[in-house]
């Protein structure tokens, strides 16, 4: 819809090239040429590089990893075919998989939900006429730009279990606690601390994307709604939400995928402990592979993770596509 509107004012694109301006003056002046004339050369130019990446840099390594899950990799990563032996071994103790699986669900579910809520709330707040909102916006995005390894180390330092730790120190200062709490040493708290770190790092990206989506909603819609007597809640559900929904699903899916395979945050903060309360599938794969050297189980579990992610992503994208069509 705004595509056509954009046509009326190609001005922003202006300084670009004179041709651009000239070209926009021209549309329709001559009958359109080609169509159906996608030459092989064009294909090579436009899709070639991506295909190189997809096939050479993704399909091959992923295929390799998937194949490895059916190979005798326990034997110093031998690639001899071994059937489903790795999977059998993995499922010998299914109980070992349940806790990490549930932990993963909690970690992904809660951190994505929290990042979406916080990001959406922030976007709504920033999408107003508040003075200094540009400053707010810049500052709120800072956590996004620092590397994950550093994020995790920083939170470990803050969540130190002694009163010398910033968080405990702060709580003690305001009188909420007398004795320090071992945040990372308690199965009740540790899962929430890793979620906190993940949300802190992740919400700005959600916010910036949703802010962009909000700003793209034409004001006319709100004006018209206001004329019709729609209240703020009604405006939110009838205009704002449908406007941001596709992006909401998109960033939710992306954040979910990143959380699903997140390893560094958890490894640095808790190493999966205490008592397995923060062990997720990604850290388990890592542990099986590098600490126990059980390559077969590790690659089999990783392949299952891949499958799981694939299913979940397809599901959410369906949702998104349907949303687009609405």
């Amino acid at each position: 819809m705004s595509g056509t509107r954009r046509m009326e004012r190609p001005a922003p694109e202006r300084p670009a090239t004179p041709t651009a301006a000239g070209a926009t003056g021209a549309p329709g002046s001559r009958p359109r040429p080609r169509r159906r004339t996608v030459s092989a050369g064009d294909r090579a130019i436009f899709f070639g590089p991506l295909m190189v990446v997809l096939v050479g840099m993704l399909a091959f390594p992923i295929g390799f990893a998937l194949y490895a899950s059916f190979a005798d990799v326990d034997n110093l990563f031998s690639l001899e075919f071994a059937g489903a032996a790795n999977y059998q071994e993995l499922f010998e103790r299914p109980a070992d998989l349940v806790t990490p699986f549930l932990n993963t669900l909690r970690f992904v579910g809660v951190s994505v939900a929290a990042a979406l809520v916080l990001g959406f709330g922030g976007a709504l707040l920033l999408n107003t006429t508040l003075r200094g909102r540009r400053w707010f916006r810049s500052a709120l995005l800072f956590p996004w730009v620092i590397p994950t390894v550093l994020v995790a180390l920083l939170w470990r330092w803050i969540m130190d279990s002694n009163l010398g730790g910033a968080f405990n120190g702060l709580l003690a200062e305001v009188g909420i606690i007398d004795d320090p709490v071992s945040w990372l040493g308690s199965p009740d708290w540790a899962p929430w601390v890793i979620i906190l770190a993940q949300v802190w790092h992740g919400f700005p990206f959600v916010m910036i994307m949703l802010l962009a989506a909000l700003q793209a909603i034409p004001d006319e819609l709100y004006e018209a709604a206001a004329v019709d007597g729609a209240g703020p809640v009604r405006q939110l559900t009838a205009i704002t939400w449908p406007g941001v929904r596709p992006i909401f699903v998109l960033v939710g899916t992306l954040e979910g995928l990143y959380a699903f395979r997140e390893f560094a945050t958890i490894d640095v903060l808790t190493k999966g402990g205490p008592a397995g309360s923060t062990e997720v599938l990604a850290t388990q794969v890592y542990r099986l592979f590098f600490e126990y050297h059980q390559f077969g189980k590790a690659v089999a579990l990783a392949a299952l993770m891949f499958l799981l992610a694939l299913l979940a992503t397809t599901f959410f994208l369906r949702l998104s596509i349907r949303g687009d069509e609405d």
């Binding site: 279990s161 002694n162 071992s182 945040w183 040493g185 308690s186 402990g273 205490p274």
Partner: peptide, 9 residues
Amino acid sequence: GLTPNPAGI
């Protein structure tokens, strides 16, 4: 209570 929570240290 004779040592801080070892699970976090």
